[in-house]
């Protein structure tokens, strides 16, 4: 297996996540796109770990850290979206233009 086939898949996942992040109106779907981007990072970390084969399996451990932080991020993110929905009865981020100049 080439290292590049994993890196390019990671790049594809990341750019799809960027597209979703920019184009979605619903805040929950924006969070879904962020998950895609974090997943791309995990693919890269594990691929590099398999490539370098260090004795301290740093790549895999950091992938686990990324997964943990992503779980925390989803929890807080959904709580914020819930608050916004409660206050404005809509979770569309393009309607949140209160601070727009």
């Amino acid at each position: 297996m080439l290292l590049n086939q994993f890196l390019i898949l990671g790049a594809l996942l990341f750019s799809l996540g960027i597209y979703g992040l920019l184009v979605r109106r619903n805040a929950v779907m924006v969070l879904l796109s962020i998950e895609l981007m974090l997943n791309a990072v995990n693919v890269n970390l594990v691929a590099f770990e398999a490539f370098l084969q260090n004795a301290n399996v740093g790549g895999q451990i950091f992938a686990i850290f990324v997964i943990t932080v992503a779980a925390a991020e989803v929890g807080v993110g959904l709580a914020i979206i819930l608050m916004i929905f409660r206050n404005r009865t809509s979770a569309n981020i393009d309607e949140l233009d209160l601070m727009k100049w």
Partner: peptide, 11 residues
């Protein structure tokens, strides 16, 4: 959690 969020915010 996501599915909960979708249902609660009535996306």
């Amino acid at each position: 959690l996501f599915l909960f969020g979708i249902m609660i915010t009535r996306a």
